[in-house]
């Protein structure tokens, strides 16, 4: 399954040389994180520690079991904490 992976500009500047969008093959969030870590070694740690993920706009904490859809979008955004 092909999914579009996206990062904020700040995150991309720090970790992916400024590239914000990637098309990768994955079935779940574990697959997404593993593939991005293959492309950018060490990125998995940053994704787990620093981000919340929007899967087709729906917010999730990083949970590897979360499925992703063919043609779907996985957008990593900074983790958010409330009051």
């Amino acid at each position: 399954m092909t999914v579009r992976v996206a990062f904020t500009s700040g995150f991309a500047r720090r970790y992916t040389g400024g590239t914000r969008d990637f098309d990768i093959e994955a079935r779940n969030l574990r697959g997404v994180v593993r593939e991005m870590d293959r492309l950018f070694p060490g990125l998995a740690h940053a994704l787990e520690e620093e981000t919340t993920v929007a899967i087709d706009g729906e917010l999730y904490e990083i949970d590897f079991t979360q499925p992703v859809k063919d043609g779907g979008e996985v957008f990593f955004i900074p983790k958010i904490e409330g009051g």
Partner: peptide, 8 residues
């Protein structure tokens, strides 16, 4: 949204 993801 300004961060990038669309409202769901």
């Amino acid at each position: 949204t300004i961060a990038g993801p669309k409202h769901a």
